[in-house]
């Protein structure tokens, strides 16, 4: 009986780890390691949002992003959150933020200070201001260079969703 309880507990911990709920490890990567993420093309619609804990409009739009991702859980849709915070603020700011917003989506910290090199690769339309979001799948690509809300996301994503 005791061992069953123990393995249930282990399962619960594994599950929490797998879904990432507030305990997720956030990879800190440079642009070359990040690049394959935005260059993958398959039947999933990806929404990659560039944000930072100190960016007020980014924080304001976050609940809409998370709510949309939650509603799309059974669809071929994936939200990836790319933090541009200073990696030194991982423990003091980024992780507490993820906990506070109960973020279960994939979070990556992009640490590559030579932004002039990689901003145009993400999008030729991007001035560098955040928030900024790119949407893509195997047959479309869209850049959104300012704050977005639930309806705005829906308008861009839904026409491209595949069953």
């Amino acid at each position: 009986m005791k061992s069953i309880r123990k393995s249930l507990l282990a399962l619960a911990i594994m599950w929490a780890g797998a879904t990432g709920l507030s305990s997720q490890d956030i990879p800190v990567i440079d642009f070359d390691s990040f690049r394959p993420i935005i260059e993958q093309r398959n039947d999933t619609v990806y929404m990659v949002n560039f944000w930072a804990t100190w960016c007020t409009p980014c924080v304001e739009e976050m609940p809409d992003l998370l709510r949309f991702a939650k509603d799309m859980r059974d669809s071929k849709f994936r939200l990836i959150l790319v933090s541009l915070d200073n990696p030194d603020h991982m423990e003091s700011r980024v992780k507490p933020f993820i906990k506070r917003f109960e973020i279960e989506e994939r979070v990556i910290l992009l640490d590559d200070p030579d932004a002039n090199r990689w901003i145009p690769i993400v999008s030729g339309e991007w001035s560098g201001a955040i928030p900024a979001t790119i949407f893509f799948s195997d047959n479309f690509r869209h850049f959104h260079g300012k704050k977005i809300d639930y309806e705005g996301i829906k308008e861009i994503v839904v026409p491209h969703l595949k069953r």
Partner: peptide, 10 residues
């Protein structure tokens, strides 16, 4: 011409 990450003008 160069680009950089920055805060949106409010």
């Amino acid at each position: 011409n160069t680009r950089a990450i920055g805060c949106t003008i409010k």
